[in-house]
Write a protein that binds this DNA or RNA. Structure first.
Lengths: 125, 125
DNA sequence: CATCTATGTTGACATACGTCGAACCAGTGG
DNA sequence: CCACTGGTTCGACGTATGTCAACATAGATG
């Protein structure tokens, strides 16, 4: 897969311009800016409910899931919506309305960026 | 001080040293328990100051750093200490006092666990 | 022991965060 | 046009979090 276009960790989608983020955590000390950017994403995954939602979307068939399919995480529906919004703002998910339902899908480039950040050795299993 | 403490991200396996707490994020929806465990670690890295401290330690020569070497992150010394404690509690760092100074080093297994969690595809680097 | 330096702990405070119920908006189908 | 279902936004509330100043502790050194 050499044709995969790697996107910045956080998309400058709605006014928030962010750099292509960061070197591996182990390469050199993060600058304040880099830390700010990367921390935003870690923070987004730093809540159990959000992590479950993210995992639910990521593991759902077709790579996307309707809210109705994943909203059984033990909190009220508004709270689910709130967390999905946070994940979207962090650039981890995208949403699309199709008729009655709203579908969320994972932004794949973000996982890749996170991998580089962690300096993961490929296939080290 | 021997660090026999089991890392939060890693479940205590009876015979083996440590085992990953969670499946890859994309494999199946996280359970509440798994999410709780993994979120704790993401949360720990979800603060800019902590991320800088962690990165500073991780990238420091020898894989360890004295507090005095990394405490220049724009906050007061007590705050640095507070954040280092949090990172330690999250299982990301270990500390050891040697004479006057206290040295922190990264717990490598945690980075590996995080990598598995992210199910990173072979990075193009 | 006295004292100095390097870190950690405590208490207080402002802010951010997660949560809910109620109100609101978007499509669908009568 | 109206009711109904799926989702989002709003307002409020309690709790967690990041921060600092002040104090406490651990070694080193005189």
């Amino acid at each position: 897969m050499s044709n995969t276009k790697v996107l910045p960790l956080l998309e400058p989608a709605d006014g928030k311009a962010v750099a292509p983020c960061c070197p591996p955590l182990t390469e050199r000390p993060f600058t304040a800016e880099e830390a700010e950017t990367a921390a935003r994403m870690f923070k987004a995954l730093g809540d159990p409910v959000r992590l479950r939602l993210f995992s639910a979307v990521a593991s759902h068939e077709g790579g996307e899931a309707c809210v109705c399919d994943i909203s059984d995480v033990g909190v009220s529906q508004p709270t689910v919506s709130h967390h999905l919004k946070k994940l979207k703002e962090a650039g981890l998910l995208t949403s699309e309305r199709r008729g009655t339902w709203v579908y969320y899908r994972v932004e794949p480039s973000v996982l890749a960026a996170m991998g580089k950040l962690l300096a993961i050795a490929p296939a080290a299993t």
